[in-house]
Amino acid sequence: MPTPYTKLVIEHFKNPHNVGEIENPDVKVTEGSPACGDMLTLYLKVDPVTHKITDIKFKSFGCASNIATGSIITDLVAGKTVEEALKITWKDAAEALGGLPPVKIHCSVLAADALHSAVEIYMEKEGLVKEKNPTKMETVFQKLTHVIDPNTGVDIVKSKIIKGVKIENGIIFIEVDLKENDQFAANVKEEILERLGYLWDIKEVKVSFSK
């Protein structure tokens, strides 16, 4: 049957590998949001001594290429060390699938982004990052660009719902321009904590809503 997808993409889409959740993962990270069409959550378990990935699972709200890339990229990194995993790109995943239609590239980037975010978070958590720089405002904003504002479909920095950021004595204070009872408020908060909570010099992240 002629489809824009390769046989391998279809196979991985039909029977994706490594689907599910991990209980007590070392890292759990979400990229994208249903508002922009694709969303992928990645769970990682890493051996504390060898830093090899012992278990990796994902869940996806997405199209065929998103699901297939999630499946293949989790296959590619299983058993690798976190440093090795960091080197795997969406291009490697797309090649391993025998190619993806150009219009679908953004869907496959998401899986690679999730992997890199998860590994970075792990490395920072475990003190594997060689140069320990103190967290600055720009680091915070850069990390926040990975959190999507479900009301607009763009990240919370671009959608200008970050009203204020303050770093004080190892605590990051973030003021979000959403109502406390906004249907997405809890979700946005959880994702902000996911992105900032692990930074080595940060003890706590406090998110407040004001509108």
Partner: peptide, 14 residues
């Protein structure tokens, strides 16, 4: 709810 339409249409096409 909770799923994306292209995945549904592609799986139906199979």
């Amino acid at each position: 709810s909770y799923i994306e339409g292209e995945s549904v249409s592609l799986r139906l096409d199979f």
